[in-house]
Amino acid sequence: MIIFGTLGRSFIGRIDPRVRVLAAVLFSIVVVLCRGYGVLATALAATVLLAVVARVGAGQALRRLTELNVFMLLVAVSLPLFIPGTPVFHIGALSWSSEGLWRAGLIAARANAIMIAMTALLATMEPAHLGFALSHLGCPDKLVHVLLFMVRYVEVVHVEYHRLRDAMRLRGFRPRFNRHTLRSLGYLTGMLLVRSLERGERIMQAMKCRGFRGRFYVLDPLKICGRDVGFAAASAALAAFLVWMEWQ
């Protein structure tokens, strides 16, 4: 699970989840639309500040950014090959253009800014709160339920997988590259699917027995307070400032 982890009681951790989701969405849209390096540098600086305020662990942030930037490296190597322009250097018939490098840099800056913002705003939230925030913001209930149940049951399925896998190993199963291995892993996957489906049905039955009618109610009703309004205003101001910079 990538997006869940830092549960904090920092300043950001106390902001209403709905406000945080909206701020993250707004920020991402603005950043994706911006093309100037100055603007993106400002956006990056703002997100780093945000991450510090949200007390995102350095290790966690670096791990995430490393994963992202390995992918960005691929973009930086491949994109300049396909975008025509002034060649910077070439190997045989392959030539890398400066316009392509420029473009790859933009994409990397955007991706990093958005990743840091998501880590600071959303990863500091309990999954259940993210679910309720999405539901309050008009996200279809079905999608929200999928998210919440995934969070709850991914561990159960994982344990079930290990139980089956251990049982296989105890009977001398060692994966090799042959038909027997492929077939056995196929059975394992199939069995996991069947069991998950059956568990899903039992959970549904248990919920029906407790009066479930397709809607979740929250035990801690969310209330917007002054701090939330302040944070929303600050986010809107930052977005407006970035847009203004872009249009200068």
């Binding site: 259940a128 149940f149 969070v151 248990a206 407790r210 009066g211 009618r213």
Partner: peptide
Amino acid sequence: FQDGDDQLFCPTVIEDVAFGPLN
């Protein structure tokens, strides 16, 4: 239910126990 994992689906105990009354 026989298996607690079928019955308990909320992250915390209090939310799970309150699920029925909220419904």
